[in-house]
């Protein structure tokens, strides 16, 4: 059986600047995968390329057996791979409820819209309390919740999350981690995070992305301890 998501030798960048070099990774059916590494080393670019916002210069992406290397973002969402962007304001002038309803845009999602909406309001009661509030008036944490909520409304079969806990207070972070665990019960996740402990708790395997390359693959059996993680981020002599 083929892999759920498979990236093969992907090279991508902005104009003359190459950000990703020959990236290969995969996500199997039924597993969550984490991506981590220093800032500015290509994790967000990787997610943008997977979602079709950018086009890879080289390499192949297959999702559920289909080649999506040249697919447009909305086609990829239609197939079921959905990304929640980091710190995204979505649509500043739109209310929470309206944004979530709109997000069930693809045909598959519309059938499940009512059920998904209930589930999101249960996961994130803050969103339910602020239904009629415009997105631009929300706090950072609430925006993050809205971004994840909107992605869930797309009825994802694989959910890509870009730094969901970035800039959140420890309490909010715990709340969000709890929600992510609940989400991962029925939607497999690919999570970009700085917090490796959170990633290890959430996912089966981790990829360390550095200088636009996969530097290391980490499974349950070779999980690094705290000192090792610090070394990966800051170099051996930090």
């Amino acid at each position: 059986m083929s892999r759920f998501l498979e990236v093969e030798g992907m090279t991508a960048g902005y104009g003359a600047v190459t950000v990703l070099r020959n990236i290969s990774l995969y996500v199997d059916h039924g597993e969550n995968v984490g991506l981590f590494g220093p800032n500015g080393h290509g994790k967000t670019t990787l997610l943008r390329t997977l979602s079709g916002l950018m086009r890879a210069a080289m390499g192949k992406v297959r999702f559920d057996g289909q080649d999506i290397s040249r697919a447009r973002p909305w086609e990829i969402v239609g197939l079921g791979m959905v990304q929640a962007q980091q710190g995204n304001t979505l649509f500043g002038e739109m209310e929470i409820a309206e944004t979530l309803e709109l997000a069930a845009f693809n045909r598959r999602a519309r059938e499940k819209a009512a059920a998904n909406l209930d589930r999101i309001y249960t996961l994130f009661p803050r969103l339910a309390e602020r239904k009629r509030q415009k997105a631009k008036t929300l706090s950072g944490g609430e925006r993050q919740m809205l971004s994840i909520g909107a992605a869930l409304m797309c009825a994802p079969r694989l959910l890509l999350l870009d730094e969901p806990t970035l800039g959140l207070s420890p309490r909010l972070k715990e709340e969000l981690a709890e929600a992510l665990r609940a989400i991962s019960q029925d939607v497999p996740l690919v999570v970009v995070e700085q917090d490796v402990e959170l990633l290890l708790a959430l996912s089966n395997r981790l990829y360390l992305i550095e200088h636009g390359e996969v530097q290391r693959e980490i499974g349950k059996d070779n999980a690094p301890d705290h000192q090792e993680i610090m070394d990966m981020y800051f170099g051996e002599h930090a």
């Binding site: 979602s51 973002p73 979505l90 739109m94 944004t99 709109l102 845009f105 797309c154």
Partner: peptide, 15 residues
């Protein structure tokens, strides 16, 4: 309206 406010975000919601 969504596309007018944030094209990338709209595309990522399948629009």
């Amino acid at each position: 309206r969504a596309v007018g406010q944030n094209q990338d975000a709209a595309a990522l919601l399948g629009i």
